[in-house]
Computed example of a mutant assay.
Amino acid sequence: MSSLLIPLIPIIVVLFIIYIFFQFIPVGLWISAMAAGVKVGIFTLVGMRLRRVPPHQIVNALIKATKAGLTISIDKLEAHYLAGGNVDRVINALIAAARAGIPLSFEKGTAIDLAGRDVLEAVQMSVNPKVIKTPIVAAVAKNGIQVMATARVTVRANIERLVGGAGEETIIARVGEGIVTTIGSAETHKNVLENPDNISKTVLKKGLDAGTAFEILSIDIADVDVGKNIGAMLQTDQAEADKKIAQAKAEQRRALAVAQEQEMKARVQEMKAKVVEAEAEVPKAIAEALRTGKLGVMDYYNLKNIAADTAMRDSISDMSKKKESK
């Protein structure tokens, strides 16, 4: 049995080598390239395999570019792939730009692609402008009435400024700022409602596309609505704030008056205490005067009569006041 297998071993080895050869070297791709008129060396394809570059992706892109009349070397395509770019998308963008008459070099296209922008979409936007709708922008006219507006901005990609140029968010922000400024400078909200095209004309003159990757073709006001009466609300809020301030000051004055009243009551109580204390010393003083002979007996009785007469007068005065109050 083993003697029968020995003659088959060379055949198996040859078949294995042929299989490895066709797996490692894309002969079919090489034949397709030659048939398309693209000269690609077989060793170039082997080198792509060694550099872990997919030969099908590079060669197919090269065939597509050659058939479109573009002259691009295979080394540049391979270098762009190794740099992390999308070779097929760049070739499609170059073909679209050539058909539309838009000047776009391979170096510029690869730079745009490596910058993270879709170069094919940019070329398509140069041919077919894009409409960007802004969110609702609210602003207040000089008469205090709020006006809310939305705009449609028609932009075209600027190929020369795609690398380093600002994106759609900047366009939307600048247009919104221009709308707010234009509405804020209007005397009344009626002026804005009657002539909404004034907003687009004023904003378009500001050159809002400077430093962006787009060229603004037109700004159209899509909708204008009247919002709240911000001026009246601010006046109401100010009046309410003034009211609260006045109430706080009044409460402060009341608290101060109450404190002063409490202080006066405390002083009166203190004075009454001193009077009671002094009155407690009167009998002692009278007794001392009688003992020392400074006050006679008749003087003492006269003093008692005066005190009794005063008490009677106070009693009559209190009774008359009660009758008047009734």
Rank of each mutant, 00 (worst) to 15 (best):
residue 5 L to M: 09
residue 14 V to Y: 02
residue 144 G to K: 06
residue 213 A to I: 10
residue 109 G to H: 00
residue 36 A to P: 05
residue 102 I to N: 03
residue 13 V to E: 14
residue 276 V to K: 15
residue 43 F to V: 15
residue 119 V to N: 01
residue 59 V to T: 05
residue 252 Q to M: 10
residue 223 D to C: 07
residue 5 L to T: 09
residue 246 A to C: 04
residue 186 A to P: 05
residue 167 G to H: 11
residue 97 A to T: 06
residue 294 K to Q: 10
residue 229 N to C: 02
residue 96 A to F: 13
residue 71 T to K: 13
residue 184 G to E: 13
residue 114 L to V: 01
residue 179 I to D: 07
residue 15 L to N: 04
residue 22 F to W: 13
residue 117 R to L: 04
residue 249 K to V: 12
residue 271 M to F: 06
residue 308 A to M: 14
residue 158 N to T: 04
residue 17 I to Y: 13
residue 10 P to H: 00
residue 88 D to K: 13
residue 194 E to D: 15
residue 310 T to P: 00
residue 170 T to P: 02
residue 50 L to P: 06
residue 212 T to V: 07
residue 300 Y to K: 08
residue 48 M to R: 02
residue 49 R to K: 15
residue 42 I to Y: 04
residue 203 V to M: 14
residue 29 L to M: 03
residue 98 A to N: 15
residue 118 D to N: 07
residue 281 E to H: 13
residue 290 L to S: 00
residue 74 I to Q: 00
residue 186 A to L: 05
residue 122 A to N: 00
residue 226 V to D: 05
residue 243 K to C: 00
residue 282 V to C: 07
residue 9 I to P: 08
residue 201 K to P: 04
residue 257 A to F: 05
residue 240 E to T: 00
residue 86 N to E: 07
residue 180 V to I: 08
residue 190 K to V: 06
residue 285 A to E: 01
residue 151 A to E: 06
residue 60 N to V: 08
residue 129 P to K: 09
residue 276 V to R: 15
residue 197 D to Y: 11
residue 150 T to F: 08
residue 266 A to C: 04
residue 320 S to W: 09
residue 264 M to T: 09
residue 146 Q to T: 14
residue 293 G to L: 08
residue 169 E to T: 05
residue 287 A to N: 10
residue 90 V to M: 08
residue 260 Q to E: 14
residue 152 R to L: 13
residue 320 S to C: 01
residue 171 I to N: 02
residue 260 Q to I: 06
residue 86 N to Q: 06
residue 52 R to Q: 11
residue 63 I to Q: 01
residue 36 A to I: 11
residue 139 A to G: 09
residue 50 L to E: 09
residue 286 I to D: 04
residue 145 I to Y: 10
residue 133 K to L: 12
residue 280 A to K: 05
residue 16 F to Q: 10
residue 159 I to Y: 11
residue 249 K to P: 00
residue 325 S to K: 11
residue 206 K to Q: 13
residue 58 I to M: 09
residue 121 E to G: 02
residue 218 S to I: 00
residue 278 A to K: 06
residue 51 R to F: 11
residue 236 T to M: 13
residue 35 A to H: 05
residue 130 K to C: 01
residue 165 G to N: 01
residue 276 V to P: 04
residue 14 V to G: 03
residue 236 T to R: 14
residue 65 A to V: 03
residue 103 P to F: 14
residue 21 F to H: 08
residue 89 R to K: 13
residue 200 S to P: 01
residue 326 K to Y: 12
residue 136 I to D: 08
residue 42 I to H: 03
residue 233 M to L: 15
residue 134 T to K: 09
residue 278 A to H: 07
residue 140 V to N: 05
